[in-house]
Amino acid sequence: MKPADSEAAFIAFAMDHGVDILHCTVREGFEQMIAFKRDVAAEGVEADDGDVLMYQWGTFDWGDGPHFLVELTRQFVEAGVPEDDAISQLSLTFRFPSTPQYENLGEGNRWFDQGESLQETEAEVRSHPGFVAVNSERAADVIVRHDYV
């Protein structure tokens, strides 16, 4: 799969596994994203850190009021492409109306490099307070997008 095709490929991958990614729980979505990383290789990416995951959480205001989000992003760095055009990201974002409980979780991110096993990555994300708070929930909004950064 080429990075530019990752959004459609991920949605199809999840559907093939019986998951409607836009109407699933956080846990189901993250399981699909990790399985997609494990099972579907990215073509044409740098050998070292050309295909990595990032987990992000926090309360943010994107112009329509504060929302708590948890997000799993697969970042690609394409080989042989000028630096400014080489980096893209496939993101799976779950947004929830903000509450004091969510705001108390703070915000941040954690990058996982290619040297870390997907089992370790999954275990760390599953134990994070942001994930634990919403893992069985269905979000107000689920966003899947691929963008060049």
Rank of each mutant, 00 (worst) to 15 (best):
R38N: 04
V40D: 02
T121S: 11
E83R: 15
T25K: 02
F68V: 07
S136L: 14
E83A: 11
A79I: 08
E124N: 12
D113K: 08
H67L: 15
D20V: 01
Q101R: 14
P97C: 07
V26W: 00
D141M: 09
E31C: 11
F30E: 01
H23E: 00
L90M: 02
R126D: 15
T121V: 15
S98Y: 07
H23I: 01
E31Y: 08
D39Y: 00
G80S: 06
L53R: 03
R95N: 06
T59P: 06
D48Q: 11
V144S: 05
E83F: 14
E122L: 14
M54K: 10
L118T: 08
L22K: 04
G63L: 06
E78N: 13
W111G: 06
F112E: 02
G29D: 00
A139C: 08
D85R: 13
T73L: 05
A79K: 15
D85T: 13
A86P: 00
D147F: 15
E120G: 10
V132E: 07
Q89T: 02
T73H: 01
R74T: 00
E137K: 11
E103P: 07
L105D: 10
A35M: 04
A123T: 11
G63T: 07
G63R: 03
V70D: 01
G65E: 06
L105R: 08
T121L: 13
F36T: 00
E116M: 11
V40R: 00
H23A: 04
T59R: 07
A47Y: 09
I87R: 11
V52F: 03
C24A: 05
I87W: 07
V52G: 01
A123E: 15
G130Q: 09
L92R: 01
S98I: 10
G63H: 06
R145L: 09
Q75W: 10
G50N: 05
L90K: 00
G80I: 05
L53A: 03
D49Y: 05
Q119T: 12
P66G: 08
D49E: 06
T73S: 06
D84K: 11
V81M: 09
